[in-house]
Design a binder for these strands. Structure first.
Length: 737
DNA sequence: AAGGCTCAGGGGTAT
DNA sequence: ACCCCTGAGCCTTGA
């Protein structure tokens, strides 16, 4: 690839364009302090480096947005220092500290606190009627960290088995015979499961890991108030915890043999756990907008919409509620999901012809029958006459992961008319014409536009270059300005990876793996999997499973191919990106494709700066494009990880992307970022290459600017270099360095 | 691509 | 305290 990319001395690259500085040029760098010694783990690090989920260096207090003693007395706005609230506790379990003992699974199964007197739980019966799954108060152990996960095989099964709870996935055959029987056997099992069930150690691990994740998230902070009405913070938090759980369960299941007849549904399993724990919001159904969920928000599982109260049924397409009209109560529709199961007409972006439910394919005898005017169909009919708003969620095929779906919340519609027509099978089908209410942010329309740009049916307005990488990436990256006349960003050479002038030598040789066709989960012989604590850090979709302090990817001497699952950050771009001119922050980066939480976006490319050069730069002037892995990070507490540890940066990596770089150099700072970085180590026999990879913090809808927290240079050194922050976030710190 | 197989929330209903 | 309705998501099979 290198030959077409130009070099410092080579001819002008096609990607070299005009000199305009983006926002991120406001980053000074500083030399390492004297006596710097990154390889002395027992001592406190000479540089300050904090993971957003902690632990934190002195001077940075962790936030407890959902669980501070005075939380309930303060208005939500004042509790909003962080976007979401992971419980952050410096804790005793630092990187080299001993692993605490096993945590009883019951410790996270504390029942939700009773509603305060006089506050009815919205007429709801509580988190779930299946409360037999949530019981048994236990000790709340907060600081179970990743070490426990990484060493789960060292836990003794007997020690854990007695703590295991009844929502274990490995149901017996008897349990599967019928729902009634299943329920019964579950409740029976609860009292004596320690003796009754013969747990194999991997099963024990699942429970322990789930316990650790939930403990580290401080879920008890989800009080009745937050369950009743959501806000952006709690919705984001729920989705973050959900996805974290789901990915981790997927990872664990991945390494196991499939059991015939047992479907693996980590989505349902994590959803149930959170439902039972009461980690959900907007429990009460409502017509119209749902607090905390914005038009254009995207989801990748139906369960996600259940948990945040956007659409309660985990399967059915029509959600409805009883509405009191004088003495009578009648059903009205509150939300619908159109996802291709029926013959809906979705041609127009603002109009949806929606089919009623029922009469359909999932009957045992496969007989298709007439739909009836009952349940959801009746509710839609009533809503037509009442004229109430109905939320519309459009399900689409996921471009990046074609077997999956993306759900786009397209805002409020009203039902204009209804009729009955004969479906393809000749049976009656109800049809409802829904029209989108004007004045809402664009959502589904944007998706349609992007699809047309991709298919060449229409062209993106304001395109300066169709591919500013000149083919250096496997996907084009457009350069777009539909704001003003500027013709491009700073002059630079596009290069998709990191340039080391000299590798860092390892003190001990590193073993490469011998996985010919690519590393596979469950392969206990793979040395790269071992380095990562027994798991591949990515799932099958290439999504980062959790926030590790350091990821070990396969290196140059490993036998596996470039498409190995343990080489995600080396395999190039997965989403269609564009560099665009922002209104007031110079150039920025965003994606045409939706991005899942945890998905790899890009690495930070550029030239590695060695120490003496750092000093030059530091004393000279501020450099425009610097990535400094030794910076301090505000405790955002939002990482999709169950680790409370700081990034483990084996050496103080500093990258300059001023002359040579990739799309990452255009990512702006935000105090409420949607992207985070993660150190990734690729080792060969005696050499070590550290890279910086960017991953999505949460699901990111198309055309949303990608931002990360630039962090803060070492305290006391940068005061005079403060720059005014333009991120516009409610939680904006006002400046950055 | 098509078909098979479970799964869970919550409405509805019988007790 | 149950049944029932509702397909999503994943897996196997096979063209």
């Amino acid at each position: 690839m290198e030959q077409s990319l130009g070099s410092d001395s080579g001819p002008a690259d096609k990607s070299r364009v005009l000199n305009v500085k983006p926002l991120r040029c406001l980053v000074p760098i500083f030399p390492s302090p004297p006596n710097f010694s990154p390889f002395s783990p027992g001592q406190s690090a000479p540089f300050v480096c904090a993971n957003p989920s902690g632990p934190f260096p002195s001077g940075f207090a962790p936030f407890y947005p959902f669980f501070s003693p005075t939380d309930s007395q303060r208005p939500p706005e004042q509790n909003s220092q962080t976007p979401f609230g992971v419980h952050n506790q410096p804790g005793p379990f630092g990187f080299n500290n001993p692993i605490p003992g096993a945590v009883p699974i019951t410790s996270f199964r504390t029942p939700p606190p009773p509603p305060p007197p006089g506050v009815a739980a919205n007429g709801d019966t509580g988190p779930s009627r299946r409360n037999y799954q949530t019981h048994t108060t236990g000790i709340q152990s907060q600081s179970q960290s990743e070490e426990a996960d990484d060493n789960e095989y060292s836990e003794t099964p007997n020690q854990n088995a007695q703590y295991l709870s009844s929502f274990s996935m490995h149901v017996t055959d008897a349990e599967r015979t019928s729902k009634a029987q299943r329920s019964k056997s579950k409740s029976q099992k609860r009292g004596r499961k320690g003796q009754e069930v013969n747990f194999s150690s991997p099963e024990v691990d699942v429970e322990l890991i789930i316990s650790n994740i939930l403990n580290s998230c401080n879920l008890m902070a989800f009080d009745t108030f937050r369950r009743a009405d959501g806000d952006k913070e709690s919705v984001g938090y729920i989705l973050m915890v959900y996805d974290l759980l789901r990915r981790r369960i997927t990872q664990i299941e991945d390494g196991k043999e499939a059991t015939p007849g047992v479907t693996r549904r980590p989505d349902l399993r994590s959803g149930t756990i959170l439902m039972n724990k009461g980690i959900r919001t907007n429990i009460k159904k409502r017509i119209g907008l749902v607090p905390g969920v914005e038009v254009g928000d995207i989801f990748f599982f139906r369960m996600e919409m259940c948990l945040v109260g956007l659409h309660a049924p985990c399967m059915a397409g029509i959600d409805y509620m009883g509405l009191k009209i004088s003495l009578e109560e009648e059903p009205v529709a509150v939300s619908i999901v159109s996802s291709g199961g029926y013959e809906d007409n979705v041609e127009d972006g603002d109009v949806l012809i929606y089919s009623g439910q029922g009469g359909n394919i999932y009957r045992k005898d496969k007989q298709i029958i007439d739909q009836k005017l009952e349940r959801g169909n009746l509710a839609l009919e009533k809503s037509l006459h009442r004229g109430n708003e109905v939320r519309v969620i459009r399900g689409l095929r996921d471009v990046v992961n074609p077997t999956g779906k993306v759900y786009v919340y397209d805002g409020l519609y009203k039902i204009q008319e209804s009729w009955v027509e004969k479906g393809k099978a000749g049976c009656n089908v109800f049809k409802y014409k829904l029209v989108r209410l004007p004045g809402q942010p664009e959502a589904f329309i944007t998706w349609k536009s992007i699809q047309q740009w991709k298919e060449g049916l229409s062209s993106r307005a304001g395109v300066i270059l169709p591919d500013l990488t000149s083919g250096a990436e496997n996907l084009p990256v457009s350069l777009v300005n539909d704001v003003d006349d500027e013709k491009g960003p700073a002059y630079f050479t596009y290069f998709p990876s990191l340039r080391y002038s000299k590798p860092v030598n390892l003190t001990e040789p590193s073993f490469s793996c011998n996985c010919q066709g690519g590393c596979l989960p469950g392969n206990s012989n793979c040395s790269c999997i071992k380095k990562n604590g027994g798991y591949i850090p990515y799932n099958v979709a290439g999504v980062l499973v959790n926030n590790k302090s350091l990821i070990y990817e396969c290196g140059p001497c490993c036998s596996c191919p470039i498409n190995c699952r343990n080489r995600i950050s080396q395999a190039g771009l997965k989403v269609r990106l564009e560099v665009f001119k922002t209104k007031d922050k110079g150039w920025g980066l965003r994606s045409w494709d939706p991005i899942r939480a945890g998905a790899f976006i890009c690495e930070y490319a550029g030239e590695v700066i060695n120490d003496c050069k750092v000093e030059e730069l530091g004393s000279e002037s501020e450099d425009d494009y610097i990535f400094d892995a030794t910076r301090t990070y505000q405790p955002l507490g939002v990482l999709p990880g169950d680790s409370n540890k700081a990034h483990q940066v084996p050496f103080p990596l500093i990258i300059s992307a001023k002359n040579v770089g990739n799309v990452a150099r255009f990512m702006n700072h935000s105090c409420s970022p949607n992207v985070f970085w993660q150190p990734v180590l690729r080792e060969s026999n005696s050499e070590s290459y550290l890279h910086i990879a960017f991953f999505a913090i949460r699901h990111i809808p198309p055309m949303t600017e990608l931002t990360y927290d630039y962090g803060i240079t070492q305290s006391g050194k940068a005061d005079e270099r403060k720059k005014r922050c333009l991120c516009g976030s409610l939680k904006c710190r006002g400046h950055f360095y």
